[in-house]
């Protein structure tokens, strides 16, 4: 039986929510108060946060794979060390995020099982392959750039543990994007082959990066309550536009061409990009991107092959506890 489970609110888990509690909760959110793990919260708030935070965590961990693919082939020792440090940071970010999700009542094991079973999502962008060293630069520049745009507002999201995890992440994130941009800049200023490598990488990653921000505002199903509960502070299209406006001048500085011949600048200086191929996005989300199966297979392999290690650690801990108890009894 459950022990002193006094901080359950099974009532709200069954959807029978007190209107007064819900109103009070909303008032706290409106006043920019932070919701903490033991505070009363609507079941839907808890559920949507577990989904969002764990998805974010899965993304960090799966995101280690495309970049990790180039650690052993990094072209200089400085780049090798920097890339390893960056990928390790991403592992750490996944850890902080799982920790935040766990404060809502899910265990990391449950969340990871769901991801390995294909039931939980991670960011679509990590289902694309890293084919050249230039991809590493472009990922740091664009993918981390897009992530930062999403993460900075989350530092002020309503749920305390998530906001604090995001503050930690953002502090560590600043060197990632700079590192990526520096790699691409070096290539752009290099030989013709290097410049072509950079342009080719940009051509392949640009559109998937724009898709990272999610479907157009009209199409998204999670928008309204997430906004009302200050989990999501800007819309997909707002963030996407902000990203494009920041990135186009960066590409121009590099002397690279954004692979969107139809893109034009409007009267307000915003860069209007062409229609995104949302069919590709749907396919990738459904598991049909270039690397979906490989990514899950790699994570499942690590998980399965690590089982005996985790079991050994648990077995030792049990033995140690038993020995300590036996010793204390003497």
């Amino acid at each position: 039986m459950y022990t002193q489970a006094l901080n359950t609110s099974d009532a709200d888990d069954r959807g029978l929510e007190d209107a007064e509690r819900a109103a009070h909760f909303q008032a706290r959110i409106d006043a920019e108060e932070r919701i903490e793990p033991n505070d009363w919260m609507p079941a839907a708030y808890r559920k949507t946060l577990i989904r969002q935070i764990s998805q974010h965590a899965h993304s960090e961990i799966v995101g280690m794979l495309p970049e990790g693919n180039w650690i052993t082939r990094a072209p200089t020792l400085r780049r090798k060390a920097a890339l390893l440090a960056k990928v390790q940071d991403e592992c750490g970010h996944g850890l902080y995020l799982y920790a935040a999700a766990e404060t809502l009542g899910a265990s990391r094991e449950q969340l990871v099982d769901a991801m390995l079973a294909g039931k939980a999502k991670y960011s679509s962008i990590f289902n694309y392959p890293t084919l050249t060293w230039a991809d590493i630069g472009v990922i740091g520049w664009l993918v981390d750039g897009a992530a930062i745009m999403n993460q900075i507002p989350l530092c002020r999201c309503s749920y305390g543990p998530y906001a604090r995890a995001m503050i930690r992440v953002c502090k560590e994130e600043s060197f990632h994007q700079r590192q990526g941009y520096e790699i691409v800049l070096t290539l752009a200023r290099g030989s013709d082959e290097q410049k072509a490598m950079a342009q080719d990488a940009l051509n392949r990653w640009w559109w998937p990066v724009l898709m990272m921000f999610g479907p157009p505002d009209k199409a998204s199903q999670h928008g309204d309550t997430s906004t009302r509960w200050k989990i999501k502070r800007f819309s997909n299209d707002e963030l996407r536009q902000k990203f494009v406006d920041a990135t186009v001048p960066q590409a121009q500085f590099l002397g690279l061409t954004i692979p969107d011949p139809g893109m034009t600048q409007d009267g307000d200086g915003h860069w209007r990009y062409s229609e995104i191929d949302w069919d590709e996005f749907k396919q990738v989300l459904a598991g049909n991107g270039p690397c979906n199966r490989d990514r899950i297979a790699a994570r499942r392999k690590a998980h399965d092959e690590g089982a005996w290690v985790r079991e050994a650690a648990a077995a030792y801990a049990e033995k140690r506890k038993y020995r300590q108890t036996a010793q204390a009894a003497e």
Binding site: G68, I71, V87, C91, K301, A302, E305, G306, R310
Partner: peptide, 9 residues
Amino acid sequence: EWCGHAPML
């Protein structure tokens, strides 16, 4: 070479 493949995070 273990990066991304270890038994636990």
